[in-house]
Design a protein around this nucleic acid. Sequence first.
DNA 1: GATAAACCCTGACGTTACGTCAGGGTCAAG
DNA 2: CTTGACCCTGACGTAACGTCAGGGTTTATC
Lengths: 250, 250
Amino acid sequence: MAYTVGKVARLAHVSVRTLHHYDELGILEPSGRSESGYRLYTDADLAQLQQVLFYKELGFSLEQIADALGDPGFDRSEALQQQRGLITSRVSQLEAMLDLIDRTVAAENGGIALSKEEMFEVFGDFDPTEYEAEVKERWGETDAYKESARRTARYTKADWQRFKDEAEEINTAIAALIDEGVAPDDARAMDAVERARLQIDQWFYPCSREMHANLGEMYIADPRFTATYEKIRPGMARWMRDAIAANATR
Amino acid sequence: MAYTVGKVARLAHVSVRTLHHYDELGILEPSGRSESGYRLYTDADLAQLQQVLFYKELGFSLEQIADALGDPGFDRSEALQQQRGLITSRVSQLEAMLDLIDRTVAAENGGIALSKEEMFEVFGDFDPTEYEAEVKERWGETDAYKESARRTARYTKADWQRFKDEAEEINTAIAALIDEGVAPDDARAMDAVERARLQIDQWFYPCSREMHANLGEMYIADPRFTATYEKIRPGMARWMRDAIAANATR
DNA sequence: GATAAACCCTGACGTTACGTCAGGGTCAAG
DNA sequence: CTTGACCCTGACGTAACGTCAGGGTTTATC
């Protein structure tokens, strides 16, 4: 029922030093100590260690992990769902790499050559803004991509920085609403996603509320978009979809 | 045809600093410089960068990458096949995580609880020695696991260190043969894998040449085993399978 | 019941793979 | 011809541990 560092280390395939480190950072403090000062981990501690390892596997920093686990509103099942989605999107990314390798080999054997962009698009994180216009075209607004390209061509470095700051602020605000437990059909929720819509409208291409609703659907249908929002808060992708849908019909 | 750092960075979703770093380490030195000293990357450099990124994605250190790419016997297609196998095994691991999450959620909803080992077995690298005895049982030698457990129970820390050193030496010798281009049915190859067989026989459980051949088949059938050997040298898993098979029938 | 091997503790410095300035030269569009 | 984006070389900072050192504790075994 109570495990010493060494036992936990062997069980979880981590080093003793790693457990010491997590203890220092407050990410995983053992529930008890023996008389002689030995760290003693309980079953609950093991469950938390598993959470730490899942998050680490998904590329979260230890600081982010500390924040997530330290949050009083932390919910294990919710986190597991979030992690499930993120792992799924990671699998898609790796499968894209397999596909890239196959196409590269085919090209070497006289197949069609790959563009420079194709050679690297599987690396690095997925950028939603790059992709939204493209998706929009599939739904009919055939000029979205061109319009977006036309506008963004003139953007300066400072413009992009402003856009990023603005986007982050909007996302932070939404995350705060989620933390407060505000429902997606609450007026504050709809206002928040309306800000997101206006931002797209202003910076990239005309985006009606109906079109925004389409994008919202994609947030939960495409694992890459889902991952983008789930990484901010568990359940955020679905919450946004619902809030955007509510905003479109109010 | 010639790209500056910034262009390469945007294309490959890496930072300029990263490219500087790779240049310092000699992992990716641009083929040219402009008059004013700007780094100029060619298409071939981009292909090499892609290789670096693949290896990095698979958890190789920059030092290992430098060794692999710097090796005069480096072969792009061979490396791509190796990477394909390693990515496949990574996907299996992530799928095991998805399965673990599902079982954890099921357990929370009144399903069967998970053992401590199950909670963590998906993390950390795959240890072949832990698994071989278990697999051996599937082929009939029903006491392999028990025998192995009986023997290893008495092993001291120093014993394990000796075993690891020995195993590494054997693998290094095999890798050297591969580097030399020695064929799997060469006598030297058979001798090398015979040493591997004797090591298993000595440390864990009786392992006949026929049984060893079965293990060899598994090295290419199970992606986790394949990954273990492919990580040492591209093509090593298949080479060992062939050498072991040759050794079993000589 | 002693004695060694294995295990635990707390510092504290080392390492990898970059991030992040600082200070200064270069290029291209208006 | 200037201004914003871009490039250079140091050089120090950082995250997540690895790796001793020095010293106490537990446990298996003789």
